[in-house]
Amino acid sequence: MTGPVSAGGGAKRGLGRLRRRPGGRRGPVRPGQLGVAFATPAILVGLVFTLGPVIVIAVFSFLSQPETGGGVVYQFSAEAYRHFLFQEDFVGNTNLDLRYLRSFGLSAFQALATTAVCIGLAFPIALWMTTKTSRVQNLLVLVVTIPFWTNLLVRTYAWILLLSDRGAANAVLEAVGLAPRQLLYNSGATLVGLIYTFLPFAILPIYSALAGFDFSLAEAAYDLGARKSGVIRRVIWPAAAGGVMSAVALCFVPAFGAFVQPVLLGGGKVLMVGNLIAAQYGEARNWPFGAALSVIILVLTLLGAFALLRLAKRSSQKVSLAI
C-alpha cells in the first residue's frame, strides 16, 4: 500500500528512501549493519498490534451481538452488515434503512470538500514556496510543519474559541455591522475544522514533489511561447501530480474517518462514520456492527488507495501514502 515515501522536506523526510546496498541478503553482514533478525522485533510489533487488530475487527464483524452489553458472541452472523442497510420493524418486516448510508454520504461529502479545498490551497502554496530562496523555503517548511505536529484537540479547540457565540468571528461580524449568529455546532464548522487540520497534510507532499522541480523547464516553455496557464497546466502540474495524489490520499482517508471535529465543532449534530463507529463501542454497545462499519471503511480506503496507485502507475507518477 505504501510506495516509496517522499513527503515534505525537513522533519518529514520520508519513511521509504531505502538505499539498497550491494550484498543484499546473502552476503555477509556489512560493517555497521545488523543481521536480519534485528529487524524482526519492529515487524513483529507491527504484525501483532497493527495487523492483529485489523484481522480481529474483520472477524468480529461476522460474529453476533450478546444479549446485553458490549463484546461479541462467537457465532457466525452477517447481521451486522444487514443492519447497515436494513432495519426490522416490530412486526418483523425488513425495510431499507438509509440512516447509516446517509452517514457515509455525509462523511464522503465532508471528506471530498476538505480534500478539494486543501488541494486547491496547497498547490498554489507549494508552488509559491518553491519560488523562494532555499533559506526561505526551509523556514516555510518549518512553518507548515509546526501545525502538522500540533495536537489535534488544540487545533480544533482554537476554532471553538474563534467561532463561539462571543468569539472573535462574531466580534468581527458585529464590527462590520452584521448580526452575530451561531457559527459553531454545524456541518460548516466541522468542515472548517477538517480543512484546518488537513491543509498541512496537503501542502507537504505537493511541496516535496515540486521542490526538486527545475524551473528552467518553465522558462523554456515561456520561451517557446507558452502562456502562464499553459505552463502551470502542462509543465508544473505534471511535476506536482505525484505529490497531489499523495495529498489526496492523506487528506481524504483521515477526513473520511474523522471523529474529533464532528463531535467538537459539529456538536453531535453532525454524525459522520467515525462517530458512528465510536458510538458502537460506547453508548450503542453493538461491537459487531461497529466492526462491520470499520471493515467497510477499511475496504473503501484500500480500494481508493489501490485505484490511486493504479492511476499513478498509468501516468508513471511516484505516489506515497505515508508521510
Binding site: M1, T2, L15, A42, T50, V54, G257, F259, S294
Partner: peptide, 19 residues
C-alpha cells in the same frame, strides 16, 4: 514490512482505536 509499519498512518484512527 514497510507496508505493515506504515499502516497506522494510513488506517483511519477510529478504526485503529476500536480494532
Amino acid at each position: 514490512s514497510t507496508t505493515i509499519l506504515a499502516a497506522p498512518i494510513v488506517v483511519p484512527e477510529v478504526v485503529m482505536g476500536v480494532a
